[in-house]
Amino acid sequence: MRNDRRPQRWTGYLFVAPATLYLAVFSLLPMIIAGWLSLHRWHLLKPEHPFVGLQNYVNILNDPFFRHALYNTFLFVVFSVPLGVISSLLVAALLARPLRGVGLFRTILYIPAVSSQVAISMVWIWILLPEIGLINQTLHGLNTLLDAVSLGSWSLPTDTAFLNHPVSAMGALVAIFIWIGLGPRMILFVAGIQQIPTTLYEAADLDGCSAWHRFRYITLPMLAPTMLFVVVTTTIAAFQIFTPVYMMTKGGPRRSTDVVLYHIFTEAWQKLEFGMASAMTYILFTMIALVALVQFTVIRPQAIEEAP
């Protein structure tokens, strides 16, 4: 391989120049702007933007509302990532085999991921409504059934406004996040499972291993790199949940779903405090970068094929 080294070609710069320039302006420059804004008291409509040093950061970290937003984000991540990863792994274990019609199931499970999140949020609001929403109507139907078998005293509540209670509102967002991302995560796991040499399973069969043991002692350990990748990308996605919050709860009830990205949105576009919003941006960015660093240092080096 190494002996066909071609001459260095300066034309290479011409090919990478547009993308490099683009990234410099629209990816790196915004980071610099955010850093600079975060050191100023920067209200969008006020002419003066006095330098305040790290005061924005001090204010934010002492702000109970921002701390609550941090807490909400962590809560969201802590529930949605493990549940999301485990559920998609289990589904992948079902779908990583040459069953008839398996492609159709993979396609169906992928649909929420490509759907408009605004449309998805609207239908979930409708499903979760008290009395007339699908869930409460189903409970009502069950009550009718219970009546029929004269267990009427056991009637189920049908007036739960799921999005008006802190716990169920957060629970709904977690459920929707898991539902949306199930397909892509499942596909990644299927790809990982299909790369496991079948000889391992044949050997296990000879030794009389049960399905659970095959999963536990072959599939799971061999999937470790895929698992790491899925956990990292799911965590990063969970840190950035926005559209369902904007559409369904607006951060409520009582700020219980006010996650950091939504909090930044309100700080910037309702209070117009771009300086404060930029400082919050940096805090969120740092959290995500720490997670991404795992991906970058552990996964990438082995994945990048050497260009000769």
Partner: peptide
């Protein structure tokens, strides 16, 4: 340069939307 490209992938754009808006 390619490593720098990869590192920009660590910055999710939705997070940087405030400065991007001003730009």
């Amino acid at each position: 340069l390619f490593t720098v490209f990869l590192m920009t992938m660590m910055v999710p754009a939705s997070v940087m939307i405030v400065p991007l808006f001003l730009l």
